[in-house]
Design a protein around this nucleic acid. Structure first.
Length: 292
DNA sequence: GTGTTTGTTATCAA
DNA sequence: CTTGATAACAAACA
């Protein structure tokens, strides 16, 4: 499940790998994964290059040098894997790298590869997506601004993540704090894993109504969220099901999770059992003793 | 065959 | 109009 830290890990890696490289070919293997026609994709990408790669929440924004933007959303099972021309072997794309083989099955493209972008030095970017929820879409500046304006709230790692902005999200909200933190229109980038982790570290029960939180509790969340995100990025993200980074490697934050995926196990703080309930339609993990 | 996994949107209700 | 709750989507796995 790629959330902000996983998407940011991929972004940082790909900036160094694919920007300024001439695009020579685009293959769309699944029409559903590309939200424009194949012809439109080829016209806007071939013989162009990416100037830079940005991110808003969980959305990757590749700036194309024709003033258009390639948006890539990985949703639940999307992967973006870059294969250097040097790592390829004759007759196929098998790799000897063991962790890559484990995560990807050793060969690309595989049956979940939906789009392939090739560069003039022979390297390739593979968009894999088991469930086909993810997508690629090319838009102009006006569309991009509209999409961001409509769908994305404050960024936990940006300057706009101020105490005032954060606090305002909670006023007059009657939903539970879990649903609130999952709402991308209010705060962008958190998903199921990092919401559970943040609420545990802040000592707040996920069922609590947002407008019942004290100023002190909101402050705790305000302080903890960017730190959880930063620590997860430092560990190159969390792999719970099939997330891998642009090198096909798993994230290391999985070992450092405090509650997510630990139902039935003992709480690291108090030794009581971690519970799991369904909240906002999502599996929700928390410690009934530590979280008030 | 059934239940579970989740990011986002569609839909409906208030 | 806004807000919120829930189902739906897709595909694999236990």
């Amino acid at each position: 499940m790629p959330e902000l830290p996983e998407v940011e890990t991929i972004r940082r890696d790909l900036v160094a790998k694919v920007t300024k490289k001439l695009i020579t070919a685009v293959e769309i293997l699944s029409l559903k994964s590309a939200h424009n026609s194949a012809a439109f994709f080829k016209k806007n990408l071939i013989k162009q290059n990416f100037d830079k790669i940005e991110r808003r929440g969980k959305l990757l924004i590749f700036n194309i040098n024709n003033n258009r933007f390639l948006l890539i959303h990985l949703k639940m099972t999307g992967q973006l894997i870059y294969l250097d021309n040097k790592t390829k072997v004759a007759g196929g794309h098998s790799l000897s790298n063991q962790s890559f083989s484990e995560a990807i099955g050793g060969e690309l493209p595989n049956r979940f590869t939906r789009v392939i972008i090739s560069f003039d030095n022979g390297s390739q970017l593979f968009f894999n997506d088991l469930r086909k929820f993810g997508y690629l879409k090319i838009v102009d500046k006006k569309d991009l601004d509209n999409i961001i304006e409509r769908n994305y709230g404050i960024e936990p790692l940006a300057k706009e993540f101020t105490w005032l902005n954060f606090k305002t999200i909670f006023t007059n909200r009657r939903t539970n704090v879990k649903a609130l933190l999952l709402n991308q229109k209010l705060i962008a980038g958190l998903g199921n894993i990092y919401v559970d982790e943040s609420l545990f570290l802040a000592g707040i029960k996920p069922q609590r109504l947002a407008n019942s939180l004290t100023e002190k509790e909101i402050k705790k969340l305000y302080q903890i969220i960017p730190r959880v995100i930063e620590r997860a990025i430092d560990s190159r993200g969390t792999t719970f099901s099939n997330y891998v980074d642009s090198r096909g490697k798993k994230g290391n934050f999985s070992n450092r999770l405090k509650v997510y995926g630990r139902s039935g196990e003992v709480c690291y703080k108090c030794k009581k059992k971690v519970l799991k309930v369904k909240l906002a339609g999502r599996g929700t993990h928390y410690c009934p003793n530590c979280q008030k």
